[in-house]
Simulated assay, not measured.
Amino acid sequence: MPTSNTIPLAVLVDWLHRFRDAVVTQRDWLTELDSAIGDADHGANMARGMTAAVEKVEQTAPQTADELFKTVGMTLVSTVGGASGPLYGTFFLRIGATLGVVTDVEPSALAAGLRAGLEGIVARGKAEAGDKTLFDAIAPALDALGAALADGKSPAEATAAAAAAAAAGRDATIDLVARKGRASYLGERSAGHMDPGSASATLLFETLAAAVAG
């Protein structure tokens, strides 16, 4: 991280590479989670989508934050089936639109971009807290990120707090009864299983923290 505390585009690119690596490495685990309450395709979908997205980034070498996240978002929408592509694609598209034509991102701007991404997920999937979806990991992560930045924490400290909050939200989905998506068809039987979307969303914030920490 530079001493200015801004987050350079290269760190954001590194984040996406790390997220790609994480979902590829954890593909079988994500699929196992999804096999219990979904279509057993979340791991494969995320690995395929992020692999394609990073390849597109490497081919096009975006020069600004909006170009970077638009590239990722559009690639996910076009290559991933099920709910994952539209939801994560919308998430990244909203981030890019919010950050705009910049190469160095202020931490508060990144937080705003991530918040806009969550709002995009809500608009598309109608998820709320407690529905047993990726919302249950992302929302607490953003609350923790905002609180840490408001307290004057560094970007590394703030993103680490976000990752920890995402993991706690992910773990809390185990006891929830799903109210959205394929898992909701199981009713009470969905309890006792971790939501796969919240698991991949936690990887998203853990890799962000790792990239920011350098």
Rank of each mutant, 00 (worst) to 15 (best):
S4L: 11
T6W: 14
I7K: 07
I7H: 02
L9M: 15
V11S: 13
L12I: 07
L12G: 07
V13P: 03
D14A: 13
L16E: 04
H17K: 01
H17T: 10
H17Q: 13
R18I: 13
F19V: 05
R20F: 12
Q26E: 15
Q26K: 15
R27M: 15
D28C: 13
W29G: 15
W29M: 15
E32F: 08
E32H: 14
L33I: 11
L33C: 08
I37G: 08
A40T: 03
H42K: 10
A44P: 14
N45P: 10
N45W: 08
M46N: 09
M46Q: 02
A47G: 07
A52L: 12
A53I: 08
A53P: 11
E58Y: 03
Q63F: 15
E67Y: 10
K70I: 10
T71H: 06
L76Q: 01
T79R: 01
G81M: 00
G81Y: 04
S84Q: 03
Y88R: 00
G89D: 03
F92P: 00
L93E: 02
R94C: 01
I95R: 00
G96T: 07
T98M: 01
V101C: 10
D104L: 00
V105W: 05
P107D: 05
S108F: 09
L110S: 05
A111Q: 06
G113N: 02
R115F: 05
R115H: 04
A116V: 03
A116G: 05
V122L: 07
A123V: 02
R124I: 04
R124N: 06
A127V: 04
A129G: 08
A129E: 10
D131C: 04
T133A: 06
L134Q: 06
L134S: 00
L134A: 00
D136Q: 03
A137Q: 02
P140Q: 01
A141C: 13
L142D: 07
G146V: 07
G146F: 05
A147I: 11
D151A: 14
S154T: 10
S154F: 08
S154H: 04
P155E: 14
P155S: 14
A156S: 11
A158V: 06
T159G: 10
A160S: 12
A162K: 08
A163P: 03
A163L: 08
A167L: 14
A168V: 11
G169Y: 08
T173Q: 11
V177L: 11
A178G: 12
K180C: 06
R182C: 04
G187Q: 02
R189N: 07
R189P: 06
S190W: 00
S190Q: 06
M194K: 12
D195F: 09
P196W: 09
G197Q: 05
S198V: 08
A199C: 03
S200D: 13
A201T: 04
F205G: 01
L208P: 09
A211F: 10
G214N: 06
